[in-house]
């Protein structure tokens, strides 16, 4: 079955999820993985969809027009075959928290180190908190550590950022068990 990725974003208000999923239901789309959240004042939805008959963007016709008319931005991506299959990433889960007074480059510097070390980020959230005078930036991410890489290694890599960016960083693996 052809799969699609649908991204929708717009000013938050009650009823967005119901409006979007109502349209998808009427079209006969299946929602597979999805993640929806409020970011700033915007509600954002990312969904992987499948439809037994649809093959391309045109198949959807103007089904999303009512969403756009109500102020939502809609983007549809047609996935290549297999694009819906989640890779099996083996390894220990690691949480990294980085926080401190807001400054440019926090996300980039952390992500750069992990990328260079081939550590896969599986989830990442950031939030600007604190007061207007003293904004505090909080970054929390989850990554999968390749074999032979420990929590201590990650902590050592992050160490220079503590002084360079004046941020606090903590690294911990999450015990995961199939019971």
């Amino acid at each position: 079955m052809q799969h699609f990725a649908l991204t929708i974003i717009g000013r938050d208000r009650p009823g967005i999820v119901s409006q979007v999923t109502g349209i998808l239901f009427d079209l006969g789309c299946n929602i597979a993985d999805s993640s929806c959240s409020i970011l700033g004042g915007q509600f954002s939805m990312i969904l992987i969809l499948a439809h037994p008959d649809y093959v391309d963007r045109e198949s959807f016709g103007d089904a999303f027009l009512p969403l756009e008319e109500s102020g939502l931005s809609v983007f549809l991506r047609v996935l290549k075959p297999g694009g819906e299959i989640r890779p099996d990433i083996e390894g220990d889960l690691c949480m990294i928290s980085v926080y401190g007074s807001d400054k440019p480059g926090i996300v980039y510097r952390v992500a750069k180190i992990l990328g260079e070390k081939q550590v896969n980020i599986t989830d990442l959230n950031t939030k600007l908190v604190g007061s207007e005078e003293r904004p505090v930036y909080v970054l929390i991410l989850e990554a999968v550590l390749p074999e032979n890489i420990t929590e201590e290694d990650v902590d050592t890599w992050m160490s220079p950022l503590r002084s360079e960016l004046q941020v606090d960083i903590s690294v911990r693996t999450i015990p995961t068990a199939e019971l």
Binding site: I174, A177, E178, L179
Partner: peptide, 14 residues
Amino acid sequence: MREGCMSVPDYTGN
């Protein structure tokens, strides 16, 4: 803990 279960494959939760 992040738990998974043999009866619910492919999903884990805190």
